[in-house]
C-alpha cells in the first residue's frame, strides 16, 4: 500500500527567472521508494526543477506536493523543517572544507537531534561505512578523490534518514568505474533503506541501470516531452527523445 503512494507530486509548474520562462506546465509524480530520473540536454532546466523541489526557489505558478504538503506555500520555518526530511547531493559534493568528513556527516545530527555526541559520531561512522568510507573519518574534503567526495556527501545527505534523496548529476566528473560503483550505491540505498531517490542526470548508462521512471525535458518546447519507464521512453515516437536516449545522430 505504502509502496505505491506518491511521495512527490508536481502540478502545473511554471518556472522562470524574472520574466524569462524556463519551463512550463510541468506535471509528474514520484512513487515512494522509486528512483526517478530527470533528463534533458544542457540548459533544459533539470537542475532548476530540482532546486524548486528542495525549496531553494519559488516557481512562477503551480504546486509541488511533498508528503502531502504544498511546499510552494511554505514559510521559511516550514522549509527548514522540510529540509530535515530530505537529503541533497550537490554536483560538487559541497562538503564543508573546514571540517573532516566525520564532522561533515555529524553536523546535521548535532544541529537537529538531542543525541549524545559520542553516539552521533558512531552513527556518522556507520553512515560513512555504508557508503564505503570506513577509515577515512578524519580526512578533509581536499584530501579525497572526486568519487570519495561524492560518497561522503551522500553519507551527509543520509545523516537524518531522509524520506527523499535528491542527487544533482551524481556521476559528473567521475570515471566510468567509479560511476558504476556510485550507481550500485544508489541502488543499495533504495533497496536497503527504502529511500526515494530523485536524480538529475544525463548519464545514459546510469539511467538505464538504476532508474525506475524518467522524464525528459526539451529546451525548445520548455516542457516534459516524454515520461515513463526508461526502456519504453527509449522507443518514444518523438525522434529527438529517441536520438537523445540512444545517442544517435
Amino acid at each position: 500500500m505504502m509502496k505505491n503512494d506518491n511521495i512527490v507530486t508536481v502540478n502545473g509548474l511554471d518556472i522562470g527567472y524574472d520574466e524569462n520562462l524556463v519551463l512550463k506546465d510541468i506535471n509528474f509524480s514520484v512513487k515512494r521508494g522509486e528512483i526517478f530520473a530527470i533528463l534533458g540536454g544542457s540548459g533544459s532546466g533539470k537542475s532548476t526543477i530540482l532546486k524548486h523541489m528542495i525549496g531553494l526557489y519559488k516557481p512562477l505558478k503551480g504546486e509541488i506536493i511533498i508528503n502531502g504538503k504544498d511546499i510552494v506555500k511554505f514559510e521559511e520555518s516550514e522549509l527548514i523543517k522540510l529540509n530535515q526530511h530530505i537529503g541533497v547531493l550537490y554536483q560538487s559534493g559541497a562538503l564543508f572544507s573546514s571540517m573532516n568528513i566525520l564532522e561533515n556527516v555529524m553536523l546535521p545530527l548535532r544541529e537537529f537531534t538531542e543525541l549524545p555526541p559520542e553516539y552521533t559520531a558512531s552513527l556518522s561512522r556507520a553512515k560513512l561505512g555504508l557508503v564505503g568510507l570506513s577509515g577515512f573519518e578524519d580526512y578533509y574534503p581536499h584530501e579525497l578523490s572526486g568519487g570519495m567526495k561524492k560518497r561522503a556527501a551522500i553519507a551527509r545527505a543520509l545523516a537524518l534518514n531522509p524520506d527523499i534523496l535528491f542527487f544533482d548529476e551524481p556521476s559528473a566528473g567521475l570515471d566510468p568505474l567509479t560511476s558504476i560503483e556510485l550507481d550500485d550505491l544508489i541502488l543499495e540505498l533504495k533497496n536497503e533503506l527504502g529511500t526515494t531517490i530523485i536524480i538529475v542526470t544525463h548519464e545514459l548508462e546510469s539511467i538505464f541501470a538504476i532508474a525506475d521512471t524518467i522524464i525528459v525535458l526539451d529546451q525548445n518546447k520548455k516542457t516534459i516531452v516524454a515520461h515513463g519507464e526508461p526502456h519504453k521512453v527509449r522507443e518514444s515516437s518523438i525522434s529527438w527523445v529517441r536520438k537523445f536516449l540512444n545517442r544517435s545522430r
Binding site: 558512531s122 561512522r125 556507520a126 560513512l128 561505512g129 555504508l130 570506513s134 577509515g135 573519518e137 578524519d138 580526512y139
Partner: peptide, 24 residues
C-alpha cells in the same frame, strides 16, 4: 560486517579492537 563498517573488529580472542588508528 556492520561493525566492520564503523571500524570495530573482533579479534581471535573475542575482544573488540579498532580497525583504524587515528591518522593525526
Amino acid at each position: 560486517k556492520f561493525l566492520l563498517k564503523t571500524g570495530i573488529r573482533r579479534d581471535a580472542t573475542g575482544y573488540a579492537t579498532l580497525l583504524f588508528k587515528p591518522r593525526n
